[in-house]
Design a protein around this nucleic acid. Structure first.
Length: 314
DNA sequence: CGGGTTTGACCCGCGC
DNA sequence: GCGCGGGTCAAACCCG
């Protein structure tokens, strides 16, 4: 674990200019800028965050199309790879994204093997599939999240099965491959940690779930994804918290079924559960998460009405 | 025992 | 054609 930063307030301070290459500035406002960039021909990110939004809306909003290879985000496939590969000289400020869509032809490779739970395709050998795989499948929509977290696999409300792990070139951190465990669901995601900034986890979702979120009842759902305070910086925390919740409510179903207060409450009530899970993580991960929880508590105390059940007395 | 993870092998596309 | 790197498989393993 090289280059770990254990400073709990690391995220609240600007990165060191000397060795941070000016690229890991993870404020949400920067994300707005990124999406507002003329070349992205989008309107303000906040519009989508506060509006009714699903993937299609997102795609539309960002002028994206599942069938299009257009890359609107300033993070395209190439610099994604570079960043994950830790190619410092090629790094740029482009990494300061919270959400990007990756729909590059390059990443659309074969979908050669039979899908999980589908017919009897698994009976075929790989070689047989090789023959069949010819026709290219329409590529699945992809979204990538950059999250500051010590935990690689963030809870997002769905259940995932890891099906592979690969070393990433020039990076000490491996990339993990997950598939949604729901039978007919073909959604996949990749998780990898940035080599340049090990506190950053990039989660790439591919495809859309065709089922409801199984973790809606579990509650913790997507609460971890954007709970990392660093992603939203130290300024305008309330707004950004609202933004991130509105966003998740639309993009991650597990969030959509609870009111803000309920979500806040879940955040509070599930901390113990989260902490329990974290005990399985390494110690530095615990450290980070404790800070997160602490930070979230601060938000909660700030936002919840004093009469709210989960609110603690100061 | 069922479900998830690990991990080496395999396949494929791409660049040279 | 060859090597490399990314993505996936699947047997072995682990764990509750």
């Amino acid at each position: 674990m090289a280059n770990e930063n254990h400073d709990p307030f690391y995220h609240h301070t600007h990165h060191h200019d000397d060795d941070e290459l000016n690229h890991s500035n993870f404020s949400f406002s920067q994300n707005f800028q990124a999406f507002d960039h003329p070349s992205s021909h989008t309107t303000s990110f906040t519009d989508y965050l506060h509006g009714s939004m699903d993937y299609n809306t997102l795609s539309k909003a960002f002028d994206l199309s599942c069938s299009s290879s257009e890359i609107l985000s300033s993070i395209n496939d190439n610099n994604m790879k570079k960043s994950s590969a830790g190619d410092s000289e090629s790094s740029s400020s482009n990494e300061a994204e919270a959400l990007v869509e990756l729909d590059s032809p390059k990443m659309e490779k074969k979908d050669k093997y039979p899908k999980l739970g589908s017919e009897d395709g698994h009976e075929n050998s790989k070689k047989e599939n090789k023959v069949k795989k010819k026709e290219k499948k329409p590529k699945e929509p992809r979204f990538a999240f950059l999250t500051k977290s010590e935990i690689d696999h963030l809870e997002d409300g769905y259940r995932w099965r890891k099906y592979g792990q690969k070393a990433v070139k020039n990076s000490p951190y491996p990339r993990s491959y997950y598939r949604c465990t729901s039978q007919k669901c073909i959604v996949k995601k990749r998780v990898e940690r940035s080599y340049q900034d090990p506190s950053i986890v990039m989660t790439t979702y591919e495809g859309q779930h065709n089922h409801h979120c199984p973790a809606t009842l579990r509650g913790n759902a997507a609460s971890n994804i954007f709970s990392s305070p660093s992603l939203f910086g130290s300024n305008s925390v309330r707004l950004e918290q609202r933004i991130h919740q509105d966003f998740l409510a639309q993009f991650l179903p597990s969030y959509s079924q609870s009111s803000n207060h309920q979500m806040f409450h879940q955040n509070v009530s599930l901390q113990a559960h989260q902490h329990q899970q974290q005990q399985q993580q390494q110690q530095h991960q615990q450290h980070q998460q404790q800070f997160q929880l602490h930070h979230d508590n601060g938000l909660l105390q700030d936002l919840l009405p004093s009469s709210f059940p989960g609110k603690q007395e100061q």
